[in-house]
């Protein structure tokens, strides 16, 4: 799980070309968007695309669920792990 979280952080940094920030600066439980990591709605869409490419996962067609998945690195990792489990 820790490895997955680390990978997600790397994807966040590389796909959004974030500067001056290392994976360890991102707090697992902090919000990714808005005040926490400070990403915006365009970043959210972009991150969705990058995560799809990297992990082959798709997000839900349900708005509320997606908001949950994108809440934090923890939430994202859980979702990705669960989806992988399903497809195995």
């Amino acid at each position: 799980m820790e490895e997955l979280k680390n990978e997600i952080k790397k994807v966040i940094i590389s796909s959004l070309e974030l500067e001056d920030i290392k994976p360890e600066d991102i707090v697992d439980s902090e919000p990714i968007f808005g005040e926490g990591l400070g990403l915006d709605s365009i970043d959210a869409l972009e991150l969705g695309v990058a995560l799809k490419k990297k992990f082959g996962i798709k997000f839900s067609s349900d708005n509320a669920e997606n908001r949950k998945h994108f809440a934090s690195v923890n939430a994202l990792a859980e979702y990705i792990a669960a989806t992988r489990e399903e497809t195995k």
Partner: peptide, 21 residues
């Protein structure tokens, strides 16, 4: 530097939408 970036980012969040910061 990351912390300084964040300070100004959060400061501007008071006035602008995230996208234009």
């Amino acid at each position: 530097k990351y912390a300084i970036n964040k300070y100004f980012h959060d400061f501007l969040m008071h006035y602008f939408e995230n996208t234009v910061i």
